[in-house]
C-alpha cells in the first residue's frame, strides 16, 4: 500500500465525517443522546469521548474481520463487537468516574443502539481497510462530539451559570435580577439549540433537500 497515511483521499474521509456528512446535522442521527446528556459540559465531553472511541474502535475491529464475517449474521456480529466495547467503557466509568457514570446513567449503554455506530459499520467498515475505517470512525465521532460540546457549553452556561462546574456568570449579574434559564436544563432547550446548529451548519455547507 503506497498510500500516505493522510493522503488527500483520507483527508476527504475526515472532512466528510466531521463536516459534510456530519452524523448529527446532516444525517440527523444520535439525537436522543445529544438531548439527554448535554445539560452539563462534563457529561457531554465524556459521552463524546465514549462514542468516538466506540465508533473508531468497532470500525477497526469490523474492518479487520470484514472478509471473514458470514453475511447472514453480520449485523449480529457488529452488534456483539459494539456491545463488548460499550460495556467495557461503562465498567471503566463506573470504576473510575463514578459521578459521571451516574449522570450518564443508561446513555452509555445506549451507545450500543446509537445509529451512528451501526451506520458507520454497515456503510463504511464492511467495505474499507482498517486505517481508512479508523479515520472514518474518528471523523464521525468528532463530528458528533463537536455538536454535543457546543450544546453542552451553551446549556451549562445559560441553564446553570457554570462551565465544567465552575461559576462563570458573576454573582453581580444575578444581583441585577438575572436568573438561570430553566428551559436549557430541560430536553426542549437542547432541541431548540440543535435546530439552530443544524440551521447554521446547513446554510454554511450549502445543504439542499433532495
Amino acid at each position: 500500500m503506497g498510500e500516505a497515511l493522510l493522503s488527500s483521499k483520507n483527508q476527504k474521509i475526515l472532512k466528510d465525517g466531521f463536516w459534510d456528512t456530519n452524523p448529527i446535522t446532516f444525517q440527523i442521527l444520535g439525537i436522543c443522546s445529544a438531548l439527554a446528556v448535554t445539560t452539563q459540559l462534563k457529561t457531554a465531553l465524556v459521552m463524546s469521548l465514549g462514542l468516538t472511541f466506540v465508533t473508531a474502535g468497532s470500525n477497526v475491529v469490523i474492518s479487520l474481520i470484514r472478509n471473514f464475517i458470514p453475511s447472514q449474521i453480520r449485523i449480529i456480529v457488529q452488534l456483539t463487537v459494539v456491545s463488548a466495547l460499550v460495556i467495557s467503557i461503562d465498567q471503566i466509568l463506573r470504576a473510575y468516574m463514578f459521578d459521571v457514570s451516574k449522570q450518564l446513567s443508561v446513555f452509555v449503554g445506549l451507545i450500543i443502539t446509537n445509529c451512528i455506530v451501526m451506520g458507520r459499520l454497515e456503510a463504511f467498515a464492511m467495505g474499507n481497510p482498517p486505517w481508512k475505517s479508523f479515520l472514518d470512525g474518528l471523523a464521525n465521532g468528532a463530528g458528533y462530539s463537536a455538536v454535543l460540546i457546543i450544546i453542552g457549553i451553551i446549556r451549562e452556561i445559560f441553564g446553570s451559570g457554570t462551565l465544567l462546574g465552575y461559576h462563570v456568570i458573576p454573582a453581580s449579574v444575578y444581583a441585577q435580577g438575572y436568573v438561570n434559564n430553566g428551559m436549557m436544563v430541560l430536553a426542549p432547550g437542547a432541541f431548540f439549540l440543535l435546530g439552530i446548529i443544524v440551521w447554521i451548519q446547513r446554510s454554511i455547507s450549502g445543504y439542499k433537500e433532495s
Binding site: 436568573v179 434559564n181 430553566g182 428551559m183 436549557m184 430541560l186 426542549p188 432547550g189
Partner: peptide, 10 residues
C-alpha cells in the same frame, strides 16, 4: 410558553 418553562419562578 418559553418564559413559562425557562423562568417559571417569575
Amino acid at each position: 410558553a418559553f418564559l413559562f418553562f425557562a423562568y417559571p419562578a417569575q
